[in-house]
Every structure is written in C-alpha cells, then in structure tokens.
Nucleic acid binder design. Structure first.
Lengths: 141, 141
DNA sequence: TCTACCCTCGCAACCCGGTTGCAAGAGGGT
DNA sequence: ACCCTCTTGCAACCGGGTTGCGAGGGTAGA
C-alpha cells in the first residue's frame, strides 16, 4: 500500500485514491489484469476512471500493456524504475482453456534481426496453448 | 483464379463464388488483410458472409489468423498443404505509423522453451515499430 | 421431374471492449 | 475563502466482431 504511493510519486504521477486502488490491485494480482478484471475487482470505481488511470499509467511507465490476442488488453506493473526497453520485454503465455495470461518473467522475448529499414519499438511475444493447471484437471481445449 | 478453386477443393471446402472472391483477394494481397480490408475490397459482399467464410477458412487451414494488436485480426493464406505447425509460424511486423502488418515470411518465429507443464499450440510473434517506407518519408510516430 | 433437405448468403440487430464529451467534485496554491 | 486545474462518474458512442433468421439455390432421392 505504502509501496504503491511511493511508486506513483517516483513516476511523477499525482496520488489519488483511485490510482492507489488500481495500482494495488495490479500489484497484488497473480498475473495480468484486463480493464474488465479491474472493473469487477473495484466495483465502486467507474470503468472510464479505470481506463483513464491505466492510460496514464502506461504513459508514465507505471504499468505496461500486453495484447495477448484474447480481445482484451492486459496490464502488468513495470518492474524497472525507468522505461522498458526491448530487452525488458518478456514472454507471455495465454491459456486457451481458462483464458488467463501468464507472465513468464524469467523468459525474455527473443529478438530476431529485421530486414534493412525496419525499426523495432516493441515486441509482443505470446505463446498460446494450455496451462499446467488446465492440463492437470484434464480440461480439453 | 483456377489456383483458388483447386486450393479450396484440396482443403475440402465447397467452392462458392464468395469463397473464390475472398481467397483470391487474400492471395493477391501484398500482405495480410483484415475483415475490414476484405469488406472494402469486396463491396458487393456482406460483412457477415466474409466473416463466416474466414471462420471456415481458418478451421479448414486455408488461411490463418494473426492478431497484431491493432484491434483487428489479420488473415493470411497458409503456405503449406497441411496444418501449420509451430515451426511454420513466422514473424510479423506491425507499423505503428501506417498501421499495416507485414509478413516476414523468411523469419520464422523464435521458440523459447517453456516451464514444466505448459503446452504450446501456437505462437504470436509481433514486432511493432516503423516500416521502411514510413521512415523514408519521415513520418514521425 | 418434383420434392425435401441442407448449405450458403444478406440483412439487421446485437454484443462487448474500449473511448469520449460533459458537468460535477476534489484538491492545491494564493 | 477563491480560483484554477485535475480528477471522477455518468452516459453515450464507436467499431470490430458475432448471431438469428429468413430467402435463395443447389442436390439427392422418390
């Protein structure tokens, strides 16, 4: 909680109650959260407020957005103090059974060399499949 | 054109005029096409018909879908005769300036090894940045 | 040939995540 | 206390995707 406030101040984001709520939810989440996840986790807060908060967080590099192709963008707290570089991008795993997105933080996204003229800004590396839990419980595709 | 019909028959898809139109458009496209692209390319055909055609094509492995995080799914004709395997997946480049998606067919998507228990079915490897053309014409982000 | 059936297609309506305009509310500085 | 700015909630909107339904057209069997 204190941690949240500190983090916001460090990134130059004015501290408000909603921003603490959103950041706290993201920091306590086991994985990533979507706008919808946050909406249902924070029932008292309006969707558009959460949306604008996330928008601000992304701009200020408090969190980063991951598009896992599920139709809803996921958010995750940035680890480093400064901006995320290409090398910071890590691998994500999307479970096609339970529709959760896992951060494989210790697996950094591989970087291929591009043809002449292409300039890379970011990498989206998503592996889709079945997560260990769903396999264990025999949930079929 | 003949090529289209042959390809559909080979994949066990009943040949209809709309299916030929859609597949032909995709085969002649320089890159990938979205549902919207096809809709405007084939003015006479209804959106839902194109949607259902693409749905069928994906199921029958005539085309595959790529989610480049632009908000609209892109489609691309499958190369091989049989189903696409992990190794077949190639890299895509999304230009944040002109919003086009490029297929880097000769760059196959890198495969990382997953933690115990995760089962990979497909890979989405998207690099976002600025394409050569947009850089040349000095279009800034 | 006639009929019954199934697949395909167009239309319209819907769904849902995301986004925006606007007005009220809260907070900080003077 | 006052003003200005930022923040928030509400409601409406947007666009891609999706679905229900009924009409059209082809096909197989009688």
């Amino acid at each position: 909680m204190e941690n949240c406030i500190e983090r916001l101040e460090k990134k130059g984001v004015r501290v408000t109650s909603i921003r603490i709520l959103v950041l706290n939810a993201l920091m306590n989440a086991s994985g990533t959260m979507s706008l919808g996840d946050l909406e249902s986790a924070l029932e008292t807060v309006d969707k558009s407020s959460i949306f604008r908060t996330l928008e601000l967080f992304v701009k200020k590099h408090v969190v980063h957005a991951i598009d896992d192709g599920s139709g809803s963008v996921k958010y995750e707290v940035c680890e480093g103090e400064d901006e995320c570089t290409l090398a910071d991008m890590h691998t994500h795993f999307y479970c096609e059974s339970c529709h959760r997105t896992f951060c494989l933080k210790d697996i950094s996204a591989p970087i291929v060399s591009l043809p002449q003229g292409f300039q890379a800004n970011s990498i989206n590396y998503i592996i889709k499949g079945i997560c260990p839990e769903c396999r264990k419980y025999g949930v079929s595709f």
